[in-house]
Design a protein around this nucleic acid. Structure first.
Lengths: 119, 119
DNA sequence: TAATCGTATCAGTGATTATTTATATGCTAA
DNA sequence: TTAGCATATAAATAATCACTGATACGATTA
């Protein structure tokens, strides 16, 4: 059961210099989670601390079903975790290094746009 | 063959700690380019050096129109540049730091899968 | 119990996209 | 000019996805 993703044994050192096999799939899956502007806003929003859905809705001025939809997607990619407290459901980042990855993308993006010759 | 890597001294102070405004859009756009398994394979493929379309087709065993389609998408996101030499069109990475971003995503993805509580 | 608040889910729609097959375009040599 | 190779593009399909509006679910309180 649970054949979505595979587990790794972390006994030996992993090769971080290149991707192989199913890693292309997992990286693509993770990148897809970051490929939506609203999801990025949500991630940055809850990076300040765990927040309930209503707070995110209010802060980002998005509809509640839309925020719930994106949070579900972020949870599916394991980027966020939830904790219930009464009627509130708090969402928080599961790994803050995703912020470093986002910043790396931002740096590259800014440079690509800056050094662009045409336009 | 010269690698045109650049030094990055900030001429204007850039805020790398957070995203604001249009940066969400550009990061999402860049992430979308990385959100496809075949495009990641293509990027890693040409990271070994500039390659013609036929070489990529052969190496990745994808159809030629599919490779051309993805290369067009990668060019649209400024991740690759082209050089024509006779009938051949060579594609190469425009910024090798995208590999670092991909590796960062891979590390996070591997950790998310590893530390996941399997119910 | 009922009522209310917070959140999730359902159904539908329009837009985007990955892929295939077929065709067109561009370059070079004979 | 022709033929032939390398690459791009067009057309069609199927799948995915972001978003909206409506509704359902769950927890708390009266």
């Amino acid at each position: 059961m649970d054949e979505d993703m595979k587990d790794y044994t972390s006994e030996t050192d992993q090769d971080t210099s290149t991707l192989h096999g199913e890693e292309f799939q997992t990286v693509a899956f993770l990148a897809k989670s970051l490929s939506d502007e609203n999801r990025l806003r949500i991630l940055l929003c809850i990076s300040q601390g765990k927040k309930a859905v209503g707070s995110i809705v209010e802060e980002l001025r998005l509809s509640q079903p839309l925020v719930s939809h994106h949070l579900k997607e972020l949870k599916r990619s394991l980027l966020v975790t939830t904790t219930r407290s009464g009627p509130f459901i708090y969402y928080e980042l599961s790994d803050f290094r995703i912020l470093e990855a986002i910043k790396a993308l931002n740096t590259v993006a800014r440079d690509l746009l800056a050094t662009r010759t045409t336009f």
